[in-house]
Amino acid sequence: MTFINYASKEINCKIVYYGPGLGGKTSNLQYIYEKTSADSKGKMISLATEADRTLFFDFLPLDLGTVRGFTTRFHLYTVPGQVFYDASRKLILKGVDGVVFVADSQVERMDANIESIRNLQENLEEHGFDLKQIPYALQFNKRDLANIVPSDQMYRTLNFKREPTFEAVATQGLGVFDTLRAVAKLILKDLSRG
């Protein structure tokens, strides 16, 4: 749900990074945080466990500049990927404008990817959203590891509406901004269609 403030000329959009546990959602946000200039970003908040696993969400506000005279702000959130945090995941999807699905490329995580996309679909439906309609980008993360599924095979398994798809190594920043740019583009295009 985009928030348009005509008084202060601002557009605020919410992007949620979704995906299985330990897939690299937080790493995506951390990289964006590190590489964004200080005046374009707010504080990054991580509500994590002592073992650094996301407990509730990570949050990063980004100020990207102006479009048609409106300051464009993106609020980036991650969800906790672990299966038993489903109630928290549902809450974070509230009012979402676009979703990035961060898939783990490792062979042994393919089932978790599939399960997580199914879970995303169900949780979106509870908020009245349709994954087929909502701005959505797919990321194959951890391409630097040895035991990974070939990209084309992942595409066939996980891509379902020709959504923009990127290979990534989030810890090194590879593919991180491409993914963000793609989903932001889809959100603003949605907005321009009214």
Binding site: V67, K185, K189, G194
Partner: peptide
């Protein structure tokens, strides 16, 4: 709508 004219270049 002021947003109906957003172009790819703007984004």
């Amino acid at each position: 709508s002021p947003f109906s004219e957003i172009t790819d270049e703007d984004i």
